[in-house]
Amino acid sequence: MKSLLHDYAEACKDIAVGAKERPGKAALYLSVITGAVLCGSNAPSDDSFHCSMLDAAGTLLLLSPWTRNGKSDRHTQRLIDLDNQGRLHHANLVFLSVMYESPHDPACDVYHARCPHLEPRWVDFPGRVLDVGFLGRWWVLRSRMKDFDVNDEEFAHLPPDMRTISWRDLHSQENEKLYVSKFLPVVMPEEQLD
């Protein structure tokens, strides 16, 4: 035990001497290790995904079907359907988490689900990934829920130049003048007063 403690003391002494000789390299190693520990400790869990998924579904449920974003609604409904079918699975990859789709429920006992020759190949795995969790967030679900209350199909009948609005359209000088003019008192000419 004494020799083991002596070896650890020598190793720590060597680390301290090496850090003094090359502080840049030591800082780089320390930052990489700290980042890895931070990412590993903040990898979201399966429960976190289910909470995020149900929160997104509840948020969309509060909106009228005519104002919901179609992409957000379809993605959330697909996730809920896969979860109800038992085909939604979680994998913790130390630094990040992945939610992926499997072709069958693990409790399914049909031939296609149990035959090892019909299992999906690892090459096809990236196509089955539904969401990536990193630093406590589920990034794909978050990006799909962006502008969840804007229905793009509602504006499909407009001409192409009117489908998008630029910053200049919203903050033009003419708009500002009209906005200010609505607070000015109304002045009527003498002819209209009689």
Rank of each mutant, 00 (worst) to 15 (best):
M1L: 15
M1T: 15
S3P: 03
H6L: 12
H6C: 08
K13D: 08
D14H: 14
D14G: 14
I15H: 05
I15K: 11
A16R: 11
K20V: 08
P23F: 04
P23M: 01
G24N: 10
G24A: 13
K25Y: 07
L30M: 11
S31T: 10
V32A: 11
I33W: 02
I33F: 11
T34E: 09
V37W: 05
V37G: 06
L38Q: 10
L38F: 14
C39F: 15
N42V: 10
A43L: 00
A43Y: 00
S45G: 06
S45D: 04
D47W: 11
S48I: 04
S48G: 11
F49S: 05
H50C: 09
D55L: 01
A57W: 10
L60Y: 01
P65T: 00
R68T: 01
N69G: 01
N69I: 02
S72V: 03
R74F: 04
L79W: 01
L79M: 15
I80Y: 03
L82E: 02
Q85M: 11
L88P: 11
H89Q: 09
F95N: 01
L96T: 06
V98T: 03
V98F: 00
M99N: 05
Y100W: 13
Y100G: 02
Y100M: 04
E101D: 11
E101L: 06
E101I: 04
E101T: 05
P103F: 02
H104R: 04
C108K: 01
Y111S: 06
H112V: 13
R114D: 07
R114M: 09
H117C: 02
H117W: 08
H117F: 09
P120V: 04
P120W: 06
V123K: 15
V123A: 15
D124I: 00
F125Y: 13
D131W: 02
V132R: 00
G133D: 04
G133M: 02
F134G: 01
G136T: 08
W138F: 09
W138K: 05
W139Y: 08
W139A: 04
R144L: 11
M145S: 02
K146T: 14
K146H: 10
D147Y: 05
V150F: 11
V150H: 09
N151K: 03
D152A: 13
E153L: 13
E154W: 14
H157M: 06
L158D: 00
P159A: 14
D161K: 11
M162Y: 13
M162A: 15
W167I: 08
H171E: 13
H171K: 13
Q173E: 15
E174K: 07
N175V: 05
N175R: 15
L178V: 05
S181P: 06
K182H: 09
F183L: 12
P185M: 04
P185N: 05
E190A: 14
E190D: 11
E191V: 12
E191M: 09
